[in-house]
């Protein structure tokens, strides 16, 4: 989605011009564009009366914000303790190999998938788990991870 004045306006309208709303406004921007575009950052900071440097400090501090566009499907593999002791690392590596992500986390070249690690989705009883978009998948193995990817490639 391109960053239009209109789409930003609907977000900014909800917030009175007060620095305390910086994180909430950026969360809305993140939800709308799947990342924080430069133009949006400037607009949010201008509106709230915050220096842009502070905006970037917040955006780089919290894990919830991404400075790059995300893929169509977001895969969050839980690497919390319960998942770790049940072999989540190997499952994560399987996703990484199959998606050919060069770094630890990242987005595929075709912008189809973004792979990232999270520490605890709070579904420890189903460990190891991964969340793909809104769905949580439990009891994963390397083989199940491969099957899931195949299903999502077709969607």
């Amino acid at each position: 989605m391109s960053v239009t004045f209109k789409s930003l306006e609907t977000i900014l309208d909800q917030y009175p011009p007060n620095p305390e709303h910086l994180i909430s406004a950026l969360q809305d921007v993140q939800a709308k564009f799947s990342y924080i575009p430069k133009e949006a950052m400037t607009a949010v900071c201008d509106h709230l009366g915050v220096p842009v440097s502070r905006g970037w400090a917040v955006a780089t501090f919290y894990k919830a914000f991404s400075l790059e566009p995300k893929g169509e499907h977001e895969i969050s593999v839980c690497l919390g303790t319960a998942c770790h002791v049940r072999g989540a690392r190997n499952v994560y590596e399987k996703f990484r190999r199959d998606l050919a992500i060069p770094g630890e986390e990242g987005t595929t070249k075709d912008l189809k998938f973004t792979l990232r690690q999270v520490r605890c989705l709070g579904c420890c009883s189903m460990a190891p788990v991964a969340q793909i978009d809104e769905e949580v998948h439990g009891g994963l193995s390397q083989r199940k991870a491969g099957t899931l990817l195949k299903q999502f490639r077709k969607r």
Binding site: G80, T81, A82, H84, R119, C120, G122
Partner: peptide, 11 residues
């Protein structure tokens, strides 16, 4: 509740 392996607050 950021503690990995704990989810009582969520529940």
């Amino acid at each position: 509740e950021g503690d990995p392996g704990a989810y009582m607050d969520r529940s």
